[in-house]
Simulated assay, not measured.
Amino acid sequence: MKMNPWTLSVLLLLAGPLGADPDWHVEYPDSFCVVEGSTATIPCSFTHPMVKEAITAPPAGLRVERVVWCANLEFCWHPVYNGYDSNSVLTSSRFLYLGDLVGNCTLNITKMLKRDAATYRFRIETNGVGWTGPNGVRVNVTDGEDVKVRSSVTDNVVKEGGQVTLTCTSACSFHQLDVHWYRNGHALSETGPALHLSHLTNGDTGNYTCSLDSSGQKTSSPWSLVVVEDEGFHRSVHLVVAVVKGVVLAVLLLLLAGVVLAKRCSNKTNEI
C-alpha cells in the first residue's frame, strides 16, 4: 500500500511518544519549584538517530531544523509563545535556549512569573520527522515571601578576624538563583545563594539582606551582624607594646648610666 508523505510523517511522529523508538529520548527532572522573580534553569539532555549514527557527520540529507520548548502542550506542534521556538520571532527574550543540536536541551527562564508555572516539554524536528519528550517537567512558581537569611554561626556577635557564611534560603528549592546581597541597603559585589565573609573587621558590621533579583522585590528580612574587638588579641598587643617600651626604657637608662660613669671617671683622671 502506498502511503502519502503527510501520513508517514504523522506515524513517525507518534512512534516516539508511544515509546516504540528507543533512538529518541529526552531526559529532564520530573518537577521542581522556583521563586517568583528568580531565574530557573531546566536541565535537559536528549538523543536522536543522528546522534547515535554519526555525531560529527550526520546521514546525508538529515538535519535538525527546529528545537522547541512549550508549556502545557502535548507535542509542541504549533508556534510557541510561552516558551522557546527556534523558528519563531515571537519567542520571549526571558526564554533562552542554552542547549545545542547534538544532545543538550537546557532551557533558562529569567524573571519567573506566576503564569510561567506549567509543564514544559522539549521537541526536536529534523527535515524528516519530529519528536517530543512525553513526560515533561512540572515547574511550580512560589511567591517567595518566606525568603530568609541563615547564618553559619548561632550568635550575631562575631569577633574581629573571624568568619561567617550567610545563606539565602526559602521553602522552595532553588535552581540557579540570581541572588543579590546587601549590607545596610547597599548592594555588595558578591552574588549567589551563599555569602562568605572572612577576616571580619568592624566595617563588616551591619544588616544583611538577600534578594532574588536585581529589582529587590523579593527581599529577605535583615540579619544583623556585629563585629567586636577580640579582647584577648588586644591584651596581647598591649602587653607586647608595654614590654617593648620597658626594654627601650631600660636600654636608655643603661646608656645614661654609662655616660654618667664615664664622666665621673674622666673627672677623677683630671684631678690626678
Rank of each mutant, 00 (worst) to 15 (best):
A118L: 03
L62H: 06
G136Y: 06
S93F: 11
A118H: 12
C70Q: 01
E74R: 13
A117F: 03
M50S: 09
V102K: 15
R121W: 01
N104L: 13
V68S: 05
L107G: 10
P59Y: 06
C70P: 04
N87W: 04
S92I: 09
V80M: 00
G103S: 15
T106Q: 14
V89C: 02
A60V: 05
V68F: 05
K52M: 12
L107N: 06
D143V: 05
T91D: 03
W131V: 06
F75V: 11
G61Y: 08
W77F: 11
L107E: 06
Y97R: 03
R63Q: 11
K114G: 02
A57T: 08
R138C: 00
D143Y: 04
E65A: 07
V139K: 07
P58F: 02
S45Y: 09
S45I: 10
D116Q: 01
A118Q: 06
L113W: 02
N140S: 15
I55V: 15
N127G: 02
T119S: 05
A57V: 01
G99S: 09
Y97S: 02
W77T: 05
F95Q: 04
Y84P: 07
D100Y: 01
Y84H: 09
N72L: 14
R121C: 01
S86Q: 00
M50A: 10
E53M: 13
V102S: 15
V102T: 15
I42F: 10
D143A: 13
N87F: 03
L73D: 15
S93A: 12
G133Q: 07
I109T: 06
T41S: 14
Y84R: 04
N140I: 05
R123F: 05
E74V: 08
T56R: 12
T142D: 12
W131G: 09
R123E: 07
P79N: 00
H48S: 08
D100N: 13
G136K: 06
P58H: 04
F75Q: 13
S88H: 03
N104E: 14
G133H: 04
T132R: 01
V129I: 13
R115T: 09
D146V: 01
T41C: 11
W131F: 13
N127Y: 03
P59E: 08
I109C: 11
T142A: 10
L107I: 11
S88Q: 03
W131C: 11
N108C: 09
N127K: 01
V67M: 10
A117S: 12
V89I: 04
G103Q: 13
L62V: 14
G133W: 06
T91P: 11
T39Q: 15
N135F: 04
F46V: 10
M112A: 02
A57K: 11
V141E: 12
P79V: 02
A118M: 05
D143T: 11
N82C: 08
A54T: 13
C76Q: 07
L90E: 10
G133C: 02
V102M: 14
H78Q: 11
L96D: 08
R138V: 00
L73M: 14
P134Q: 00
M50P: 00
K111C: 08
N108H: 06
G128D: 10
M112T: 00
G130Q: 08
K52D: 10
Y84C: 04
G128Y: 12
L96P: 00
G136P: 01
R123I: 00
G133P: 03
P43M: 13
D143F: 03
P134Y: 00
A54Q: 14
N127P: 03
L101R: 13
G61K: 10
